[in-house]
Design a protein around this nucleic acid. Sequence first.
DNA 1: GATGACAGGTCTATAATAGAAACCATTCAA
DNA 2: TTGAATGGTTTCTATTATAGACCTGTCATC
Lengths: 146, 146
Amino acid sequence: MSGSDVLAARFDHWQGAGFDPARCPVRDVLDHIGDKWTTLILIVLAEKARRFSEMHRAVPDISKRMLTQTLRNLERDGMVTRHVFPTKPPSVEYRLSPLGLSVMSPLAELIEWAESRHAEIQQARARFDAAMSQSQAVLQIETVVR
Amino acid sequence: MSGSDVLAARFDHWQGAGFDPARCPVRDVLDHIGDKWTTLILIVLAEKARRFSEMHRAVPDISKRMLTQTLRNLERDGMVTRHVFPTKPPSVEYRLSPLGLSVMSPLAELIEWAESRHAEIQQARARFDAAMSQSQAVLQIETVVR
DNA sequence: GATGACAGGTCTATAATAGAAACCATTCAA
DNA sequence: TTGAATGGTTTCTATTATAGACCTGTCATC
């Protein structure tokens, strides 16, 4: 409730500015954070610096390709730094930058919200799906009768 | 920093539980919020209840299909309610539910973070891209020399 | 009475993206 | 000599997003 009005005003401002997506932080920044894997990777890195394969083991169902891509994007955005050590075979360590660390606090609040409302959301989904299959069934009958 | 440790512990817990994606709120809930349009739609609805075409005008570069889909998902998750009025032609109004309203506060913090760090992120991107085109150029030369 | 505008969508065809699996170069151990 | 581990890249396919045409219905305009 407190945030809504501030956001609404801000939105009007963006909209007034011709609505250039590049000037809208929501779209330019949060699109990445909303990526399928980015939040998870940030959480994993928040615990401690990690190596590539270590992260792959921590999040088993990400493909290497997606892991690479997610890390590259985070690196490009300055949220993560990449350090190569000349061991044999070479090892690569990723860690959160100060910028990356700074997103964890707002992100943590959102995650806590998600966790506390998870059951409620799942119930809403079940209700919606039940109502849908109801009306679907009605449509079926109507089609048959027709 | 404060959020990191809490999150790390929580992550360990999820991971211990066999890592079922359906039991991980981050993946089950935030994936939706991270959708390309969902956050924007939430912001638009935070200002006031709106009709379909009104939203389409507010966010001109969303397609009707995506607007429909985004709204359906939000409705399914119980974040938005849909009200049909028997005017001619019928009008449909969408509004935030209490649940939808409750996400605005953590979301607002994240958006504020995005706004305050936007410039920093854009600079990081520019640096990264410059460094990349550098090394790309080097690769080109090496290839030519070879 | 044909034409267009608005409402709130759906349908289809194409473009962009994600994902699985194979591959690669290097090094060490068995 | 085969196998495993390192940190990826490449290729091919499956999924998803998007644009744009279309639809049903009512009203106003010409």
